[in-house]
Amino acid sequence: MFTATQIVDALVELKVTHVIWIPDTTTGSWEPALESCSHFQLIRVCREGEAWALAGGLLIGGSLPIVLIQNTGFFESGDSMRNIVFDLGIPVFAIIGARNWLTESSSDTARRFTLPLVQAWDIDFEFITGPEEQEKLFLHFRKCRRTNQAGILLLAE
């Protein structure tokens, strides 16, 4: 997957102002780079449900945050996401790690339910399975900004 430098450079190029996150075993190694970047603020939340509302407040206030969480947290935070994205219509963009996606033999139920649940929420999403597909992040983020709609980028882990 992305190196820390690759993801930070991408977020800087996209002019992201805040990264709201809870780490997982893949994205956790990005912490020093995310924390030290002067172009955006890293905000640690305790539970993923906070992340969507926090992003909503930032967007109402004119900032450009992204939510960076794992699929398990996406499952957990569904009602908060529903409220911010659908009730309030705030175009939050989230990068969501898809745990064990690259392990085909995995019996991880988080892997099993990722696509069905993302599809059920009817949020425009793209799936990146390797760093060679980095361009998808730029294209999808910019498309969501242009159309003022929420978006999800799934990162295969």
Partner: peptide, 16 residues
């Protein structure tokens, strides 16, 4: 609203 969402939403406004 979603219960529990007001404080994070307000935090976002405060930061922005």
């Amino acid at each position: 609203s979603a219960m529990g969402g007001a404080i994070p939403l307000g935090l976002g406004l405060a930061l922005a």
